[in-house]
């Protein structure tokens, strides 16, 4: 097997929260990400799902070193980039790009589309074969924008088109890895599919790897090869898409999947439904033992004391639970 594009080993990111004011007393530590391992191979998509406060977005940003990791290793194409400085990271930036949730907020409103896409070449001091202008036109065409609109400003485009601009910018330097943070969740239903299909096509064409961060399990299920389920900074379960969605082993995964509404009234209403009680606990003050124990419907005393380790239960499938669900045999 080829070497992974991205490998994370025990990645942790803790934020210190302070009280503010002149004394700035330390109040506590938020363990936003508390030990994540993953591998993404060329042409592969790893989906990172979880509810708000699960730490999935922080993982994406730490991978790109927008945050400095607290612990663990980030290995990009076999090289450890954990300790690299901002300057040392710069040449690598063309290899790893990001697509954001809100295409409007992430595009400078005073720059034309051409300037926005062209800036990526400027920053890396790269002149594409055929010149920057021709390349911008080619990219716009590739992502489904009319190249004649090169001089328009972001506000003149619809939400879906703006996300296409974001995609064009991300693929301009032919990166190996794209971290996509909720790339379609701000878009209307009929537009989501367009962008998802575009991402699919680009992956085929350039053998791109995606780290796809999203809360919408339907989209993640559609686009991912492997899926990691996070809860309060920890990985609950990690598996191939088919295994995870067909036979979730972690009680949280199972509850999460059962909560996703299915656009099929008869099938949807007949499904077994696990409704979790309460809300996510505060990440400032996570429960002892298994972080999920306060909402788990299978909770036992052991779960409140002992932290379950993330163990490999089958090739490519790991699980952090003392009392996992039985595997559903493949039909």
């Amino acid at each position: 097997m080829s070497q992974p594009v991205l490998k994370l080993e025990g990645l942790k990111k803790h934020f210190e929260s302070t009280s503010g004011g002149i004394f700035n007393k330390k109040k506590g530590v938020v363990k936003a990400v508390d030990g994540v391992d993953l591998e993404i191979f060329p042409g592969e998509t790893v989906g990172l799902v979880g509810e708000s406060g699960s730490g999935k977005t922080t993982v994406g940003r730490t991978v790109l070193k927008l945050y400095e990791p607290t612990e663990g290793k980030i290995i990009f194409e076999g090289n450890d980039i954990t300790g690299l400085t901002r300057k040392q990271m710069k040449p690598l930036r063309s290899q790893m790009q990001m697509i954001f949730q809100d295409p409007f907020a992430s595009l400078n409103p005073r720059q034309t589309v051409g300037a926005l896409i062209g800036a990526t070449f400027e920053i890396q001091k790269i002149t594409p074969p055929g010149g920057v202008e021709a390349e911008i036109a080619r990219l716009m065409e590739r992502v489904g924008l009319n190249p004649e609109h090169v001089n328009r400003y972001p506000h003149e485009f619809s939400g879906g088109q703006r996300q296409r601009i974001g995609v064009a910018r991300a693929i301009a330097l032919k990166p190996k890895l794209i971290v996509a943070d909720e790339p379609v969740s701000a878009l209307d239903v009929s537009i989501q599919a367009q962008v998802v299909n575009l991402l699919d096509d680009l992956q085929q064409e350039f053998n791109l790897s995606y780290l796809f961060v999203a809360h919408d399990l339907s989209v993640v299920q559609h686009i991912s090869d492997k899926v990691i389920v996070m809860y309060l900074g920890k990985v609950m379960e990690q598996a191939n898409k088919i295994d995870l969605f067909r036979s979730p082993r972690h009680p949280y995964t199972k509850a999460l999947l059962s909560a996703v509404p299915v656009p099929d009234p008869i099938k949807g209403r007949a499904r077994e439904r696990i409704i979790l009680e309460g809300d996510l606990p505060s990440p400032m003050n996570p429960p002892a033992g298994c972080v999920f124990n306060t909402r788990c419907w299978k909770v036992q005393d052991k779960c409140r004391i002992e932290v379950p380790e993330l163990l490999q239960i089958a090739p490519g499938q790991s699980l952090a639970c003392h009392f996992p669900e039985p595997a559903v045999p493949a039909i």
Binding site: V189, S190, V196, S218, H222, K241, F245, P263, D264
Partner: peptide
């Protein structure tokens, strides 16, 4: 069109 454009968690 809408029904066909949405990904579904129950269709693998």
């Amino acid at each position: 069109g809408l029904l066909n454009s949405i990904p579904r968690v129950d269709q693998l």
